[in-house]
Design a protein around this nucleic acid. Structure first.
Length: 347
DNA sequence: AATTTAACCAACCGCCGAGCG
DNA sequence: GCGCTCGGCGGTTGGTTAAAT
């Protein structure tokens, strides 16, 4: 009944592999193929468990493994896929040729996760998180490179305004608006608070952070998200320099999304001017009206791809920590249409 | 120069579903 | 149909190296 045990662990070697062991394993698999891990160690002359041999082969010795540092594009893909798939490392690895699940998992835990946290993004939900936001870093960056009005953001956040300002405010133009909002808060705090209370942000955030357990198989929704992402990636790769139609690949900003909904007049103004869709206004049809967009109903908010937003300013092969971190921050910016100047009237 | 701390990553552990006997 | 193992997976550990004190 059943099978004989995979291996008797007594007397089998553990720990790091020697080059001699690697050579034995590689030679055997080249001759016989990676089949029947139970009998492989004995046949190959290895004092190892079959499981250990399989791990060594799949994670290190396999000839198609791409060693070395992750390319920028790979990192971006990992972040995107993780936002859709969660900690399904094998599923992510299946879409990154040459990378193993173990390698991706390690890289996520030691690099990407920390970088997202520093950028104020929850690495689990991929949503902006004020409690993880390094405000001093953002403030410093804004003061040096963007616009002093960023300080208003930090001040608002530090003052505990709820819900927290959306990171898109890091954009200089939006920072200008933030300054006006801060002024509104100062001059008419009751109206300001009323706007905040009318927000449905909490409800939306709950849908973003629904702590459901992850099944071993992809859910139908995850598969849809993944297909959408892969299709978008293919389109971007096949049409370099050509922006993918958001109307086709993204669902425009929901009306109850983030910061915008904290100021209903602001979001209404956008709808009325057809800058975002889904509300009383029309679709995103204006080429200059790429306010923001997000895929529909993902378990976590998915950030747009770099090719959509960076205009090729950052090469796919640039890999320094500073550049990557800078890119993470840039993901938090959105393009603002010139017509947004009309907001001055609104203010 | 010595020690401590942090970062990295290969390898192990334990669980689970599929499938064999 | 049942018991068991295999193969795969995600989480965790611990050894090694680099950086900081």
């Amino acid at each position: 009944m059943g099978r004989t045990p995979c291996c008797d662990k007594n007397g089998l070697k553990k720990g790091p592999w020697t080059t001699e062991e690697d050579h034995k394993l590689t030679s055997y698999i080249h001759m016989h193929g990676p089949a029947n891990w139970r009998t492989l160690p004995k046949n190959a002359g290895l004092q190892r468990c079959g499981k250990s041999c399989r791990l060594r082969w799949t994670n290190y010795l396999r000839p198609d493994i791409k060693r070395g540092r992750f390319a920028f594009q790979e990192e971006e893909t990992i972040i995107q896929l993780h936002s859709i798939l969660g900690n399904k490392w094998s599923a992510i690895a299946a879409r990154l040729p040459g990378r193993t699940d173990n390698e991706i998992k390690n890289y996520w835990n030691t690099h990407i996760r920390k970088r997202l946290l520093r950028s104020g993004i929850d690495p689990v939900t991929h949503a902006p998180r004020l409690d993880h936001l390094d405000l001093s870093a953002i403030l410093g960056n804004a003061l040096c490179h963007v616009n002093p009005a960023a300080s208003l953001l930090a001040l608002l956040a530090a003052a505990g305004s709820q819900p927290p300002p959306h990171p898109s405010l890091i954009n200089p133009e939006l920072l200008r608006i933030a300054a006006a909002l801060a002024s509104l808060k100062q001059e008419n705090p009751e109206l300001y608070l009323q706007r905040l209370q009318e927000s449905q942000l909490a409800q939306h955030q709950q849908t973003l952070t629904d702590p459901q357990t992850t099944p071993s198989q992809l859910t139908q929704q995850q598969q849809v998200e993944l297909d959408r992402f892969l299709e978008l990636n293919n389109n971007n790769n096949n049409n370099s320099g050509t922006q993918v139609s958001r109307q086709d690949n993204f669902v425009s900003l929901p009306k109850d999304f983030g910061f915008w909904n904290t100021i209903p007049e602001l979001s209404d103004w956008y709808y009325q001017h057809n800058l975002i869709s889904g509300g009383s206004g029309g679709n995103v049809s204006n080429a200059n009206s790429s306010v923001t967009s997000t895929p529909l109903s993902s378990p976590a908010q998915v950030t747009p791809t770099s090719s959509t937003f960076l205009n090729g300013s950052l090469s796919a092969t640039t890999t320094t920590e500073d550049e990557r971190e800078s890119y993470c921050s840039s993901l938090l910016k959105f393009e603002i249409p010139e017509s947004l100047e009309l907001l001055d009237d609104f203010m």
